[in-house]
Computed example of a mutant assay.
Amino acid sequence: MKLNSIGLDADKSLSISKDLNILLANFQRYYQNLRGIHWNIKGKRFFDLHVKFEELYNDANLKVDMVAERILTLGGVPLHTFEDYISNSKVPVGKNVSEDESAIRLIVDSLKELLVIERKILASSDDAHDEGTNSMMSDFITEQEKVLWMMKAWLGEAI
C-alpha cells in the first residue's frame, strides 16, 4: 500500500476526494439555493426567514471551503466550475422560490441529499482511517440533522 504525505492509503484518499467533490458540487447548489431564497423571500415571515437564510448560506459557504481544502489535503483537485457542479449534483434546483413553505421545503430536500452523501463519505473515511474527513463529516451530519429537525418542525412535520 502506498501512503500519501499525511500517512493515509493514497488510493483510498483519492477515492474519498472524488466523493468529496460530489459533496462539493451539491453544497454549491445548496448554497446558491439559499442565496436565492434569501433574496426572493416574501410575506409576513420575511424578516425572520431572511435572517435565517443568510445564516444558513454563510454556514454553507464555510463548508464549501472546508470541503475543497480537504480534497486538496487528500491529493485531489476540487471541482470549481458551474458545469461540474451541475453535472455532479442531486440537490434540487430552487428557481424563483419566494414563498416561505416552498423555501423551507427546498432546504429540507437539499439537506436530505447532503446527508446521504456525507454518510457515504463517513463510512469510507472510517474504513480508510481518515480521521480528518471522518470528523468533518460527523460534524456536518450533526449540524445538518439539527437544522433538518428545525425545518421539519417549522413545517409542522415529524422528523
Results as ranks from 00 to 15, higher is better:
Ser13Tyr: 05
Asp139Ile: 11
Asp9Cys: 07
Lys52Pro: 01
Phe140Gln: 08
Ile104Asn: 04
Tyr30Ile: 01
Ala10Thr: 08
Leu20Gly: 07
Lys90Ile: 01
Asn4Gln: 03
Ile159Ser: 15
Ser13Glu: 02
Gln32Trp: 12
His50Asn: 10
Ser138Lys: 12
Thr73Pro: 00
Ile86Val: 14
Asp126Leu: 01
Leu155Lys: 12
Ile107Pro: 01
Met136Gln: 15
His129Phe: 05
Ala153Ile: 10
Ile107Asn: 08
Ala123Arg: 10
Asn33Ala: 06
Phe82Lys: 03
Leu148Ile: 04
Lys18Thr: 13
Phe53His: 09
Met66His: 14
Asp139Tyr: 08
Leu111Thr: 02
Val147Phe: 00
Pro92Gly: 04
Asp109Cys: 01
Val64Lys: 03
Phe46Gly: 09
Trp154Asp: 14
Leu115Ser: 08
Gly132Ala: 13
Ser5His: 15
Ser135Tyr: 12
Glu54Tyr: 07
Ser102Phe: 12
Glu55Trp: 10
His80Tyr: 11
Lys63Cys: 04
Glu157Cys: 00
Val97Pro: 05
Val91Phe: 02
Tyr30Asp: 06
Glu113Ala: 10
Lys152Phe: 01
Asp109Pro: 03
Lys120Ser: 12
Leu49Trp: 07
Lys18Met: 06
His50Thr: 10
Asn96Ala: 14
Val97Glu: 04
Asn61Ser: 15
Ile86Ser: 07
Leu56Pro: 03
Ala128Asn: 08
His80Lys: 09
Leu72Gly: 07
Leu24Arg: 11
Val108Ile: 14
Asn33Cys: 07
Met150Asn: 11
Asp59Phe: 13
Ser124Asp: 12
Ala25His: 10
Gly94Glu: 06
Phe53Asn: 08
Thr81Gln: 03
Ser110Gln: 02
Ser102Thr: 12
Ser17Cys: 00
Met150Cys: 07
